[in-house]
Amino acid sequence: MFEARLVQGSLWKKLLESIKDLLNEAIFDCSSTGITLQAMDSSHVSLVSISMNSDGFDTYRCDRNLSMGIHLPSLSKIMKCAGNDDIITMKATDDADTVSLVFESQNNEKVSDYEMKLIDLDTEHLGIPETEYSCVVKMPSSEFQRICRDLSQLGDSVVIACTKEGVKFSASGELGTGNIKLCQSASTDKEEEAVVVDMNEAVCLTFALRYLNFFAKATPLSAQVQLSMSKDVPLVVEYKISELGFLRFYLAPKIED
């Protein structure tokens, strides 16, 4: 028996909205410690990694490890049927070929339940090495979203250059060039608005804006986003999911041909 109840059900809605355009299907691995998901997009350029700890749920039970293959656009459609303030419970029996979703309104006057078919999926898990990154930037997630959107007007790629002073995003194309520079915040009164750069070594890397714009769909999940970068390794874009865990995106860099 698997059952996970989340009072802040909107987190599920936001999570699905964050990944459904990047991934078509994925396996939700459920165990006694929580729910994890790891999946690459079809072009093998980016990877989504989700971790939700059992402690973060209001009720959590998982008697036997369970791998649920889910067609994400379908789950997203069903999650859209939940109200923003609804409590969401996900349930499955051990050998189930379906998953149940129960949406309860806060006042308990409306209860909806949906059942969705699971799918058989063969996915390969990748081992992601523990890495010390040369630069870790924390910034408002809305600012990151805006920068990716704005620079997409100029080109397909963004060059991210990080030094101890701050971080610079640059794009160029047929119409010209654009640079957006963010300086490290002088004071950190408002933690959510701060730009913080933790740098061991300056880096300058190029990434496809198309994918960063997909990642930025996770903006409603968290006020801050964290970018971890080292020379010639995939970028990590991390959004915290409240008390539950995290949503991380990995993106392979573009290199000089």
Binding site: H125, L126, S157, P234, Y250, A252, E256, D257
Partner: peptide, 14 residues
Amino acid sequence: KSKQTSLMSFFKKK
């Protein structure tokens, strides 16, 4: 001109 790399060249299959 820059070329997109694949994640498979950085991360190994488990």
